[in-house]
Simulated scan of single mutants.
Amino acid sequence: MTGPRRDGDVDGELRARLHEAAGAHRPDRARMLARIEHGKAVGDRRPARRPLPGWVRVAGATAAVAAVLVAGGYTVASAVRDDAGVRRPVATSPGSREPGAREPGPLRSSGVVDPHSNEFWAQSNVTLRVGAPLTALTVELRVAQTGSVTSTGAWRSLPEGDFTFTADERDGFLVYRWTLREGRTVPAGEWVFAGQYNHERGGRDAGGDRYSATATAGSGRLSVAGGFTAGG
């Protein structure tokens, strides 16, 4: 008859069985090596992260700043300027006689039929662009007599008291003439001299109309002349 088992006997038996199981275990070395090789292969296929060149980092920072400025409603302009691409005024010779703008130095001009003209009435505008004060100025507007052309008035954007004015007909033209009074000066700026007139019903051809202006400035005597274009 077997007596009761003591705790020491149980522990000894358990240790014996564990030792026996450990001795019987044989790790699958081939499978472990396969896993290690697989891990190395995957790592080798991953692209290496190379450091970015300095210019790329600078460009990225610039783009980020630009994005912030645009989001804030600012305009980003180039810091590089090409002086060859800057537009500059182009001067024409004083002898030019084509209709439209004139540019002989400090006095420029243009002539246009006012866009508010209609089939019975018209206004011709002479615009002077003065680059320096003038001590003498005479402006003459000649409207060709194309049929029933009669004056209905005139005006200028400079003070009326600074000019003498005449309007009469001669040599087939209605002639308006403004002359700067002695001792008065025309300051630099853009000034308009306008003649108003009735004409026969229908569209009137202003191809025969002319204007001219002579002036005196610190640089000497100046003159401009030209025809009229249709206002738009």
Rank of each mutant, 00 (worst) to 15 (best):
M1V: 14
M1F: 11
M1E: 07
T2G: 13
G3H: 04
D7S: 12
V10K: 11
D11R: 15
G12N: 11
A16R: 15
A21M: 14
A24N: 10
H25T: 10
R26W: 03
D28N: 15
R29L: 13
R29N: 05
R29Y: 03
L33M: 12
I36Q: 15
E37V: 07
H38T: 07
G39V: 13
G39P: 00
G39A: 14
A41Y: 03
G43R: 15
D44M: 05
D44Y: 02
D44P: 01
P47M: 08
P47T: 06
A48S: 15
R50G: 09
R50D: 10
P51E: 12
P51S: 12
L52V: 04
V56M: 08
R57W: 01
G60K: 13
G60H: 12
T62H: 13
T62N: 13
A64V: 10
A64T: 10
V65W: 09
V65G: 04
A67R: 12
A67G: 14
L69A: 13
V70T: 10
A71R: 15
G73Q: 02
Y74L: 10
V76Q: 02
V76H: 01
S78L: 06
S78F: 02
G85H: 05
G85P: 00
V86W: 08
R87M: 09
R87E: 09
R88L: 14
R97E: 09
P99N: 06
P104A: 11
P106L: 06
L107Q: 02
L107R: 00
V113N: 04
D114P: 01
N118H: 08
F120H: 10
W121L: 07
W121F: 09
W121M: 03
A122Q: 05
L128N: 09
L128P: 03
A132G: 09
A136H: 03
A136G: 15
T138D: 07
T138H: 00
T138K: 08
T138P: 00
R142W: 04
Q145G: 09
T146A: 15
G147L: 05
R156A: 14
S157P: 03
E160F: 07
F163M: 03
T164M: 07
E169H: 07
D171S: 12
F173E: 13
L174K: 04
V175M: 04
V175K: 02
V175Q: 08
R177D: 05
R177I: 03
T179I: 05
V186S: 01
V186P: 01
A188P: 01
A188K: 06
G189R: 01
V192Y: 05
Q196H: 08
Q196Y: 02
Y197A: 11
Y197C: 02
E200M: 11
G202W: 09
G208R: 14
G208K: 08
R210D: 07
Y211G: 02
A215S: 05
S219G: 13
R221K: 13
L222W: 06
S223R: 11
V224R: 04
V224W: 04
G226P: 06
G226S: 12
G227Y: 04
F228K: 04
